[in-house]
């Protein structure tokens, strides 16, 4: 089962990281990044199956594919920005981490603009 694999990998990695961080702090950053990415790759097939199911639901229920694409894009941006920010925070660079997170938020806002305009149009048509 995937959860055993993830937890096993996490425990082994944090024990090894404990040793590496004491000896060579600069190498421990690369190692923690590798572990984070491996944990993502373990969970990737489950994630893509969930996305496929939601994709079918969206197309069946007649939602415009644009909106589902935006949702996926926002999810991807938030995930990657969070990974980058936590890696920077792991290295002790708090300022860089907050900058990465802010850039992620702005990108999410930019990609969600079409939905906001659509909502405004609907409201305008209702009002008039």
């Amino acid at each position: 089962m995937d959860i055993f694999q993830v937890v096993g990998l996490g425990i082994v990695a944090s024990v090894v990281l404990l040793l590496v961080r004491k000896e060579r702090p600069e190498l421990s950053l690369g190692l923690s990044l590798v572990v984070g990415l491996m944990l993502f790759f373990v969970i990737l097939p489950r994630l893509s199956s969930v996305i496929a199911v939601f994709g079918n639901l969206a197309t069946e229920s007649g939602i415009e594919p644009l909106y589902f694409g935006i949702i996926l894009k926002v999810l991807a941006i938030s995930y990657v920005a969070d990974l980058g920010a936590s890696i920077c925070r792991d290295a002790g660079e708090e300022m860089v981490a907050t900058r990465v997170e802010m850039a992620g938020k702005i990108l999410i806002l930019v990609s969600a603009l079409p939905i906001v305009q659509e909502v405004l149009n609907v409201i305008r048509t209702l009002m008039s």
Binding site: R24, E26, L27, G30, L31, L33, V34, L37, M38, F40, F41, L44, L47, S48, I51, G69, L72, K73, L75, A76, Y79, V80
Partner: peptide, 27 residues
Amino acid sequence: TGIVIVLTLVTGLVADFFDSVRSTFQL
């Protein structure tokens, strides 16, 4: 040299990570 070796390993994995994110989220 140790840092450089680890970085080359890590960049390979990060490139794979970005490709798989791009493919799963249909970006």
